[in-house]
Simulated scan of single mutants.
Amino acid sequence: MIRAAVVGAAGYIGGEVLRLLLGHPKVEVAAAVSSRYPGKRVDGPHPNLRGTTDLAFCTEEQLDSYDVLFLATPHRATMKLLPRLAPKAKTVIDLSGDFRLRDAEEFARRYGAEHTRPDLLGEFTTGLPELAREQLAGADRIAAPGCMATAAILALTPLTDAGLIEPDVDVDARTGSSGSGATAGEANLHAERSGSMRLFATSGHRHEAEIAQACGVRPVMTATGVEAVRGVQTVCRTTLREGVTEADVRAAYRRRYADEPFVRVVAQRRGLYRLPEPKILLGSNFCDVGFAADGSGSRRLLAIAALDNLVKGGAGNAVQSLNVRMGWPERLGLEFPGLHPV
């Protein structure tokens, strides 16, 4: 049994980390840090945890020593917190965007601030087991990728690994309101968000850099906020290289994800859920990926992925990475399959 602490535990991602770790057979949640609710029970802001724990939030100053520290803190805050928090645990798993990119200049361009600890960027391994399983096995600094980036990367990787597509990719992402966090502002009030499909970050989305870094493509990405609370779906418009067939594409997906515990290939010709749909993945750590070829004979191909932004797009990826780091079965604590109907 290892001891874990979660910093930023009152937010949506922090709450999901708590939920998953409280059900994990090899982890004791020893501390949950919140600057907003010190001394208050964690099942206040996270009512779904009622009856599962008597844990109360503590302050950063009350932290002791732990085996693993999860940082569910805001973008641009983690890089300032890390130097003083890192000594608290051997293994640090960051769920913010601060250590996802390896290039400090690219970080500054995408996040609108200079990176205060560029010397630490090279210490972090990408917390996406499907891409970095071998590196995670010995990693003590892990950076979980963004939710929409995770979906796009998993949709594109079989195609880029096999050299099946041209490098220019158009990524169209849709996301639920929980992606804005528990302290989102006026734009995410129910009265403003309900019924809307709000296009945001129409150019230069920060996840473009993560997708390019992981897949070696030139992505252009837009994101749309939709009615859902949870869930991400990405539709990546690609162009097949000359001579590539639909059979080649299907074989690449099957081959790449044949042994992955949390990626399922969903590309059927008929049925209500014939392509990846986030609704049936809510609460689960699965990412469904699929594709749709243009039947007219052109080289256009849609690469599609869906996931729960708070689980496989965040906390679940982090826990899965911890499982790999510790040499445990990857499904440990992550067995929930999702619900249908919802």
Rank of each mutant, 00 (worst) to 15 (best):
H24M: 11
G8C: 03
Y37D: 06
T245I: 08
P341Y: 01
E134P: 11
M79F: 09
A5K: 03
A143V: 08
Y253W: 05
K312T: 03
D308R: 03
A214L: 10
T73F: 09
G176Y: 02
P158S: 08
R331A: 14
K40V: 13
E106M: 07
V324I: 14
L121H: 02
R254F: 14
A187E: 15
V289E: 00
A144S: 12
N285K: 15
D64C: 03
E106L: 11
W328L: 15
A137T: 06
D43P: 09
T245D: 05
H24F: 11
L322K: 02
L156C: 01
Q62S: 15
L121I: 12
G179F: 04
A144V: 12
K40R: 13
P118A: 09
D54W: 04
T175C: 09
L20I: 09
L302K: 15
G295P: 01
N317L: 12
L128V: 04
A10H: 01
D54H: 08
A303M: 09
A5I: 02
G271K: 10
V235W: 02
D54Y: 04
L95C: 04
R76G: 01
H115Q: 10
V220S: 15
L282Q: 12
L310P: 00
R256M: 06
A143R: 04
G316D: 05
F107L: 09
L49T: 06
M148S: 14
A86K: 00
G15E: 07
A318D: 04
L63V: 08
R218T: 11
P276F: 01
L275M: 12
G39Q: 03
T175I: 15
L199A: 10
V6F: 05
D43M: 13
L20Q: 08
F262N: 06
F336A: 14
I165E: 12
E227A: 08
V266R: 12
V263S: 10
R41L: 10
T116P: 03
D259L: 07
H207D: 15
G163A: 10
A9W: 05
R102C: 05
D294Y: 07
D259T: 13
Y257E: 05
G231D: 02
V229L: 13
A9P: 01
C58F: 09
Q213K: 10
G97H: 03
D168G: 07
V33L: 09
T160G: 05
A86T: 00
L131S: 03
R109E: 13
A155N: 04
R254L: 15
A182D: 08
R109S: 09
F291T: 08
G333T: 11
Y111K: 02
L18V: 03
L154N: 03
V342H: 15
A293Y: 10
I2C: 12
L272M: 12
V17N: 06
